[in-house]
């Protein structure tokens, strides 16, 4: 029982991290109808920027304090993500308005290739570390309740907490601010939003920026967990089933979907994996999402699909 709970909690915490990446997809899809395959590349780019700047800044400015260097690096990386978002809107999206979904998907794949290449050209392609002072050693809790207690990874726990905070902040931003309201209006109906004077282009830049910041946070967390390297882009591939499971247009869907996929993945790997040779995590997540989709084709919280001839 204790072991099962451990697996379950581990799954929930990984799931929270998946939701963080999935959130980036959902934000952009909601506001611009673009399925952004470049999200993984953005995560890698942001993490690379963060890792390298926190390494370079002490040398440039003579700052010894790790905390200050990290904060400065975060600000610079966030600014970089803003520039990337602005360029993407300016150079690509603006010219592809009203194209088909498949064309837009391919365009973001092109962007992904470009950002991958750019990031590695500018920042190098070795494995880098991000050290934001996350505690590494696991702790035991609830020793009184179970025999042996539960082993919980502190790092995962903090990461999940950060993810939850970010999600809450985003929810507040969407519900309470004027910009958030404009974003929701654009998501509902482009033309109607435009006709009441909401500037579409600026909204798109904002939403790509927000997605960029989300990518930065995801990059920092995943990067300090796994090390910043090219394989970070595959994190986005693992977040895709989360997106379709929760529904492409739903922020809560991304969270719930992430938790379901996280738990499903861990439980299947631990209990089913040994029977078939292990390594089943990644396709199992997709299969799980597929099974849900067979019952609800628009995802758990997606908008209902209505067909008219």
């Amino acid at each position: 029982m204790g072991f099962f709970l451990e697996v379950l909690i581990g799954g929930l915490m990984t799931g929270m991290l998946y939701s963080l990446v999935a959130l980036g997809f959902v934000l952009i899809f909601k506001a611009s109808g673009v399925f952004n395959f470049a999200q993984g590349a953005m995560v890698l780019f942001a993490a690379l920027a963060m890792a390298r700047f926190s390494e370079w800044i002490p040398g440039w400015l003579g700052v010894e304090n790790l905390m200050v260097a990290n904060i400065l690096a975060f600000i610079i990386a966030a600014f970089l993500m803003f520039v990337v978002a602005w360029l993407i809107e300016r150079l690509v999206l603006r010219h592809l308005v009203n194209q088909e979904g498949a064309t837009l998907l391919m365009a973001t794949l092109g962007i992904a290739y470009f950002i991958d290449g750019l990031g590695q050209t500018v920042f190098g392609s070795d494995i880098y570390k991000i050290d934001v002072g996350m505690p590494k050693e696991p702790v035991m809790v609830l020793q009184g309740v179970f025999e042996g207690g539960l082993l919980i990874n502190k790092e995962d726990f903090i990461a999940a907490l950060v993810a939850a905070l970010l999600v809450a902040a985003l929810a507040l931003f969407f519900q309470k601010t004027a910009t958030g309201r404009a974003l929701r209006a654009v998501a509902d109906d482009h033309q109607a939003a435009q006709s009441i004077g909401i500037p579409l282009n600026r909204i798109w830049v904002i939403v790509w920026c927000v997605a960029g910041i989300v990518a930065l946070v995801a990059g920092i967390i995943w990067g300090s967990k796994l090390g910043v390297q090219f394989s970070l882009v595959t994190v986005a591939l693992r977040a895709l089933p989360v997106v379709i499971l929760g529904g492409l247009t739903s922020v809560p869907g991304a969270i719930i979907g992430g938790l379901i996929i996280g738990v499903g993945e861990k439980v299947s790997e631990v209990y089913l994996g040994p029977l078939v040779g292990g390594g089943i995590e990644i396709w199992f997540a997709y299969m799980l999402a597929l099974v849900f989709l067979l019952f609800r084709p628009q995802g758990l919280f997606g908008e209902k699909i209505i067909d008219r001839v």
């Binding site: 150079l91 690509v92 391919m106 365009a107 794949l109 092109g110 962007i111 992904a112 290739y113 470009f114 950002i115 991958d116 290449g117 750019l118 050209t121």
Partner: peptide, 8 residues
């Protein structure tokens, strides 16, 4: 990079 840019 160039491949991606050309595709876009």
């Amino acid at each position: 990079m160039i491949f991606g840019a050309l595709i876009v």
